[in-house]
Amino acid sequence: MIAAQALTDMAPGFADLALDAQRTFRRLMDSMAKPGRVTDLDVLVSPPVPGFEAAGAIALALLDFETPVWFPDDADGRRLANWVRFHCGCPVTTDPAAAAFALAGPHNVPQIDHFNAGDAKYPERSTTLLIVCPALVGGAAIDLTGPGIAEPLSIAPAGLSAAFWGAVAQDRARFQLGVDLVLTCGTQIVGLPRSTRISPSSAKGK
């Protein structure tokens, strides 16, 4: 799946390895601790596929030789895989169930039940799935409750089907198992860890 690395046009990674990774992680941690809130990562990296700025920064901050990563098997996926593999030295896997992390979207959102949901005794061995959306607003509204959410909150990311949200709801029903999601668009992210319970918005039409 992975072609030889073409280094002449390899996009750069973080300008400051330690501090850019810290800033990126810290905002990601904040958005996982407070699910549903839109956070701007505010770190400038230019992955080879436009729209993946935040997802790419998170990959650079967290991936290394210990984290098999999955990409969609298409041209964009291969370009991203080359870039991430160059900067992080991470193994790239074609088996979603073997992936610690996965990057996908916006045209190619995979089925989340193909990814690793962890083990009852080791639930942390699940996949963290980063999905790039066309926009984080304007889609169908989804209500969120759970840890980190003070007042009932709803999000409306675009480009995600009812079937996708149905699969997420099923995934949430089997907590402590589950796939942790980060929705991204450009430099913005929304954390949706498995602890967040979701339902189609009841506020529709109000």
């Binding site: 860890p193 498995r194 602890s195």
Partner: peptide, 11 residues
């Protein structure tokens, strides 16, 4: 950091 993120996801 990866461990912290999973810890937050599974309170």
């Amino acid at each position: 950091r990866r461990a912290i993120l999973k810890a937050i996801a599974i309170p």
